[in-house]
Amino acid sequence: MTTAEALGRATFREVEADLEVVRREVVADGVVALTLAAPDGAELPQWSPGAHIDLLLPDLVRQYSLCGDTRDRRHWRIGVLLDPQSRGGSRYIHEHLREGATVRIRGPRNHFPFVRARRYLFVAGGIGITPLLPMIAAAQAIGAEWELHYVGRSRASMGFLDELAPHAEQVTLIPRDERDRLDLDALLARPRTDTAVYCCGPERLLTAVEAGCRDRDGTTAHVERFSAKVTDEPAPDTAFEVDCQRSGVTVTVPAGTSIYSAVEAAGVDVLGSCMEGVCGTCECDVLEGVADHRDSVLSESERESGETIMICVSRARSERLVLDL
């Protein structure tokens, strides 16, 4: 069995609704876990490991991974780190989303799907542990071998350690104030073609894992980013045409203007959130033409297929794109 069988890249029923904070826990220094539920107790949409939801906060939208039990249809849980450089999102959540408060959500959405494999290597950095928790539960449920290497500033700053405690033999904690740093070269030298490598955390860690996996035949890194990936300087912007097939609208996208902005200005109903090519909210199907992908969501194989595009940052390599908008 290979890592090709995806369990999570399904399209789930997305909702936009007000949910209530029914539980708030401090799970580490600067980290809170919020459990959300419908005020009337109704079931929430199904989701799979790797999924995230949008929190529609005052004047901004933020994405957080679901980190609870996929079998629990009445509760969703997220973990939120208070970012010292917060632009308002995490600070608002920590200060205002107490038990009994309500918050508008949108989702779930999954661009970090869990794939079936015989073995799993999980690497987490800080709050990057959140999407990996349900993946670990899924690996355990299918009887796969797995190991987790979890890096943090200190043990006190690393969330959800109580949940990982029963798996002490499979979990390596790496608080940077207690021991040497993670030896990625040694770690990535072990995986074979039947091992799926999953990583979530700071950009430096993701980049190192991706580079380490590229150097080893048959080893693919599955990563999720919190911010836009640092890439080589893109090709200069040029104008191109976008045909929105469902809407019957055709627009010219000038240099320096995103597809999202151009079609929205033309009256096309589009969804967006991060506007940095990270969250996947603005993804749409490409029916004709060649996309110039500049997002941090799609895998290399998805980019090569050319079937979808993130219209908040990506552009066109062809003179015309036909999109399912």
Rank of each mutant, 00 (worst) to 15 (best):
T2N: 14
A6R: 12
G8E: 02
A10H: 15
D18M: 11
L19P: 01
R24F: 07
R24L: 01
V26N: 12
D29E: 14
L34S: 03
T35V: 12
A42P: 11
L44W: 01
A51T: 01
H52E: 03
H52C: 09
L56R: 14
S65P: 11
C67A: 14
T70N: 09
R71W: 11
R73S: 12
H75S: 04
H75Y: 02
R77G: 04
I78Y: 01
L82V: 11
S86H: 06
G88H: 08
G88E: 09
H94D: 08
H94L: 09
H96L: 07
H96E: 13
L97K: 00
L97W: 02
R98I: 13
R98E: 15
A101M: 07
V103K: 01
G107Q: 04
R109L: 03
F112G: 00
F114P: 04
F114V: 11
A117P: 07
L121T: 06
G125P: 04
I127L: 07
P134T: 00
P134I: 01
A138H: 09
I142V: 15
E145N: 13
E147Y: 08
Y150P: 03
S154E: 06
A156I: 04
A156F: 06
S157C: 05
G159W: 02
F160S: 11
P166D: 10
P166L: 04
H167I: 00
H167D: 14
A168V: 06
E169Q: 15
V171C: 08
L173G: 09
D177H: 13
E178I: 13
L184N: 03
D185E: 14
L187V: 07
R190F: 03
P191F: 01
P191R: 10
T195C: 09
Y198A: 02
Y198S: 05
Y198H: 06
P202D: 09
E210S: 14
A211M: 10
A211Y: 12
A211F: 07
C213T: 11
H222F: 12
A228K: 13
V230E: 13
D232R: 15
P234E: 08
P234N: 08
A235I: 12
A235T: 13
T238G: 15
C244Q: 05
S247F: 04
V253C: 10
V253D: 08
T257N: 04
I259Y: 06
A262R: 06
V263Q: 10
G267D: 06
V270C: 15
E276I: 04
E276W: 03
G277M: 04
G277Q: 02
G277W: 01
G277V: 03
T281C: 00
T281Q: 03
C284S: 14
D285M: 12
L287Q: 08
L287G: 03
S296E: 08
E300T: 14
S301T: 14
T308H: 09
M310I: 10
E319M: 07
V322D: 05
V322A: 11
V322W: 07
D324N: 13
